[in-house]
Design a protein around this nucleic acid. Structure first.
Lengths: 149, 149
DNA sequence: ATTGACCTTAAACTCAAGTTTAATGTTATA
DNA sequence: TATAACATTAAACTTGAGTTTAAGGTCAAT
């Protein structure tokens, strides 16, 4: 059986951030659903932790805090905002897919540079990549290399 | 035949950034190789533009400006720094591969939420995801879904 | 030689996303 | 009941990565 209630310290540990980050998110309106004790201490439920994980996922898609706040507002509205929330995730999907494509291109360039330096080190100098013939080799390399991966 | 020399405006247009960004990079020591006219105007060669593109690639791997400065310093040292530059790109490769893995996990979560909202909208309420039986369905969905993609 | 479109720098400013500090209140336990 | 280890807030501070501003110098075409 899992624990049911969490302190801010527990929540912070689960999310692997300092407690100050959780307080900052709350201050920015990301956590309006978090209840308090009479003393003012925050109480996080399992459900709150699950929502924190979704907020973390949105952050990792590159969504700025202000837009995540919109999502939290929609959460407060319940079923009336299902469509908006759905469209938000559809857009995040498109964005992340674009990021993946971009990241693959970056990886191709990094891999090319690895090969560039391997061959330069073997030759003892970068000059081997300066002549026209070698440039042709580079292109041939790139063409083959990218289809091989 | 391509143009041989570029102004800061040309370079900025080629890199799709404002000229202020190029000046900022120069101020931070990223562009020690860029020559000047007697008047002080920067002159970018084809090679400089190629190096700018590599700097842009490094930036897109998440490398901070201060570490890119190290790369520029190594460039100035010529063949003596081939090994260091090679190791730098090997590390960037590992980092980008990790980013790709992480991004795939994020996409899995986003896809799960898309399904979550599709089904909630069809049912007219999110409550369908609250009962224990439905939670089991979620898990089954996730298991099947991720192997299907 | 004047005009407009360029270029230069230093320094101040912006922005997001936190982090730190200070002053104070609460809870668990020995 | 004292004390340690938590918690609270507001406000100031930090960091990275630029952008903007101000004051001025240069270039190309008329």
């Amino acid at each position: 059986m899992e624990k049911e209630k969490y302190t801010i310290k527990d929540a912070a540990k689960l999310m692997d951030v300092p407690t100050s980050t959780i307080r900052y998110y709350d201050k920015e309106g990301l956590l309006p659903f978090v209840e308090r004790m009479e003393s003012g201490y925050r109480i996080f439920t399992e459900k709150d932790i699950a929502t924190l994980r979704i907020i973390d996922c949105l952050k990792k898609t590159g969504m700025p805090i202000k837009e995540i706040r919109q999502f939290s507002d929609w959460l407060e509205q319940g079923d009336a905002s299902l469509q908006q929330r759905y469209e938000m995730f559809l857009e995040r999907k498109r964005i992340v897919e674009k990021q993946m494509t971009e990241l693959q291109k970056i990886l191709d360039t990094v891999n090319y540079k690895c090969w560039y330096y391997e061959t330069a080190i073997a030759a003892g100098t970068e000059k081997i990549h300066h002549s026209n013939e070698e440039k042709v080799s580079d292109n041939l390399y790139l063409e083959n290399y990218q289809s091989k991966i």
